[in-house]
C-alpha cells in the first residue's frame, strides 16, 4: 500500500528547485519512478511530498559536440537515448545498453536521471557511463556542481545527492580515436536485470598498444565497481588473449558481489571474470577498427 503524499508538479526547473528547498527532507523527487513506485507500494518509503520533474522540458535534451562531448538532460527517456542518431553514431555502446535495459514500456517511461539517482547497483547505465568517464551535473536552488559519476555512486541505493539536490545532466566526453567500448550483462532472460554485468572501454595508441582502459562491473558490489588493477595491468600492453584471461581473474577477485537467490557470490565472481575477459577482448577488437 502506498502511503499518502501530496503530488507537486513544478512547471520549471527553477520552481522544482524552490520546492525542493522548501520541503527538504519531507519530499522525494520522481522522474519516471517505476522502481520508486515498487518500493513505495511495499510501504518501504514514506514521503509527504512527491515532486515530479519528468515533464520539465528544460532537462529533456541530447546535445553533442565533438569537443564538448555528449550532454543528456536528466529527464531524457531511455528510449529517446537509444533512438538518438548522434548517440548511435558516437556511442554505440550506450544504445546497446539502453536497448537491453528493460522492456520497451519501461524504456519509454523511465529516464536516465531517475535511473542514476535511484542508485541501484544492478542498474545498467552507471557502469557503462563510468567506463566512458562520464560526469554528472547535479544542482539545488543555490547552484550546481559537477562530479564524476564514479563519485556520484555511493552505496546500495545511495548517491552523492544531498538534500534539495537533483540530477540535471549526464556528460560523456567524446571518445578518443581508436576507442572501443562494450557492455554485457549476464541474465537468463533477454532484457532482464543482470545477475552481473561488465563494461569495458579500451583506447589504443598509434602502435596498437593500450593507451587507456576502464573496466566497470555492475551488480558486483554496493555500487559499480571499477577494477583498477586490471587497468594497470593492461596499460601499455598489446592485444593478448592471455592477458584478458588474467584480467578476468583479477576482476573476479576484486569485485564484491553478494549471494542472493539468483546466484551465489562465488558464481557471480566467476561470471564477472568471464564477462570482463569477453568485454575487454571485444572492446579491444572494436578499438582496432
Amino acid at each position: 500500500m502506498i502511503h499518502d503524499f501530496t503530488y507537486l508538479k513544478p512547471s520549471s526547473l527553477k520552481e522544482a528547485l524552490t520546492m525542493l528547498e522548501e520541503h527538504k527532507d519531507d519530499c522525494k523527487v520522481i522522474c519516471g519512478g517505476q522502481s520508486l513506485l515498487i518500493i513505495m507500494r511495499q510501504g518501504l518509503l514514506v514521503t509527504d511530498y512527491l515532486i515530479d520533474i519528468k515533464h520539465i522540458k528544460e532537462l529533456d535534451y541530447i546535445q553533442f559536440d565533438a569537443k564538448a562531448g555528449l550532454k543528456i538532460g536528466a529527464t531524457t527517456t531511455h528510449h529517446t537515448i537509444e533512438t538518438s542518431d548522434v548517440i548511435k553514431k558516437n556511442y554505440p555502446v550506450l544504445v546497446a545498453m539502453e536497448n537491453k535495459l528493460a522492456s520497451i514500456q519501461v524504456r519509454n517511461w523511465g529516464t536516465i536521471g531517475g535511473n542514476l539517482a535511484h542508485g541501484d547497483p544492478s542498474g545498467d547505465p552507471a557502469s557503462v557511463l563510468i567506463a566512458l568517464k562520464a560526469n554528472i551535473k547535479v544542482g539545488n536552488a543555490k547552484g550546481g556542481r559537477t562530479l564524476t559519476l564514479e563519485d556520484f555512486c555511493v552505496d546500495f541505493f545511495e548517491t552523492a545527492l544531498e538534500e534539495g539536490e537533483i540530477v540535471l545532466e549526464v556528460q560523456v566526453p567524446t571518445p578518443e580515436a581508436k576507442t572501443g567500448a562494450t557492455y554485457q550483462k549476464f541474465n537468463l532472460l533477454e532484457s532482464d536485470q543482470g545477475m552481473v554485468a561488465a563494461a569495458a572501454a579500451v583506447t589504443l595508441n598509434g602502435g596498437g598498444k593500450c593507451k587507456d582502459v576502464r573496466v566497470v562491473l555492475g551488480n558486483a558490489g554496493p555500487k559499480p565497481v571499477r577494477i583498477k588493477r586490471v587497468e594497470e595491468l593492461l596499460r601499455g600492453k598489446g592485444y593478448d588473449e592471455k592477458l584478458f584471461a588474467e584480467a578476468g581473474k583479477i576482476a573476479s577477485e576484486d569485485c564484491e558481489p553478494v549471494t542472493d537467490i539468483h546466484a551465489s557470490e562465488e558464481h557471480r565472481r566467476h561470471l564477472l571474470g568471464v564477462l570482463t575477459k569477453r568485454m575487454l577482448k571485444q572492446a579491444w577488437e572494436q578499438a582496432k577498427g
Binding site: 518500493i39 552505496d155 546500495f156 554496493p222
Partner: peptide, 17 residues
Amino acid sequence: GKLAMFGDRILRAKSKE
C-alpha cells in the same frame, strides 16, 4: 515480511559496512 525480499542482498552487503 517485506524486508525478506528486499533485504536479503542489502543486509549482507550492509553487514560488511
